[in-house]
Design a protein around this nucleic acid. Structure first.
Lengths: 134, 134
DNA sequence: CTTGACCTTCCCATAAGGTCAAGGTTGATC
DNA sequence: GATCAACCTTGACCTTATGGGAAGGTCAAG
């Protein structure tokens, strides 16, 4: 199978597959006589694993560790759980941060007339650094 | 005032100030005889406005529009409100997306023993593309 | 033979900076 | 007068995870 088919069947782009190879996330694909990359069903399986991991928000660095654990028949499930747990913590931190921004902004928006007049508490806050919160 | 002082007083880094100038977010600063950038209190005010906007999660593109509205004495507060509202919507979308990922992952983690055995539903899901959700 | 769909490598761009290099300026101290 | 530290200048490369496109090789069909 050439890269195009591996791409469409894994859900990745050909560009991404080449990139993953270039950074060492996957080992270099075999080549046909014409120089085209060749992919086996096993390779495809690995690509789909990567795709799914990325969809769940794991960074390529984390995907790399997941791949290693996946290939390792001696792995402890605790290691996988720890990796996933750390990622969940990370997601929660980012969610809390975004929610904090949203709440601050929402409060500002709530106090803005939103009419044709120029007076605007949102700009006032941006100007002065805010008066009522950290 | 030189760039270092403008930086420490605005909360931005000197590097960021130069960067904002290079991308046209702020107009080129005046120069002293020695070639150093010179900043007025008015410039500082603008820099602090940018810093505060960035802290609230606005992209540089949005900051640019906010600056324009801020300078415009004829602005309608409705325009500012709309911009902030769109940003809130954006934040909410990102929050929902992250929360979705977190929930999926959390469910997988909950089903993983997390012991010394290699059997692991997390890897199983990554492998097969998930069985119980979109 | 040509067309079009593949594939190859290589370079550039993104957002929002960080880091480091190599050099000029300034002010204070010895 | 030398020197040292702290500032400033530009520039170039690093990051993450991709997208876009150029320039060219390959292959099958018409």
């Amino acid at each position: 199978m050439n890269i195009g088919q591996a791409a469409s069947r894994s859900g990745l782009s050909a560009k991404m597959i080449r990139y993953y190879e270039s950074i060492g996330l996957i080992s270099p694909a075999g080549r046909n006589a014409n120089g085209y990359r060749r992919y086996s069903d096993d390779d495809l399986h690995r690509l789909a694993f990567i795709k799914r991991s990325r969809d769940l928000g794991f960074s390529l660095e984390e995907v790399s560790r997941l791949l290693t654990l996946w290939q390792d028949r001696q792995r402890a499930s605790a290691d996988v759980k720890a990796l996933a747990g750390a990622h969940i913590d990370d997601l929660n931190r980012r969610i809390a941060e975004l929610a904090g921004l949203r709440d601050t902004l929402q409060e500002l928006v709530d106090h803005c007339h939103g009419d044709g007049r120029p007076d605007c508490p949102i700009l006032k806050d941006l100007e002065s650094g805010g008066c009522c919160r950290a």
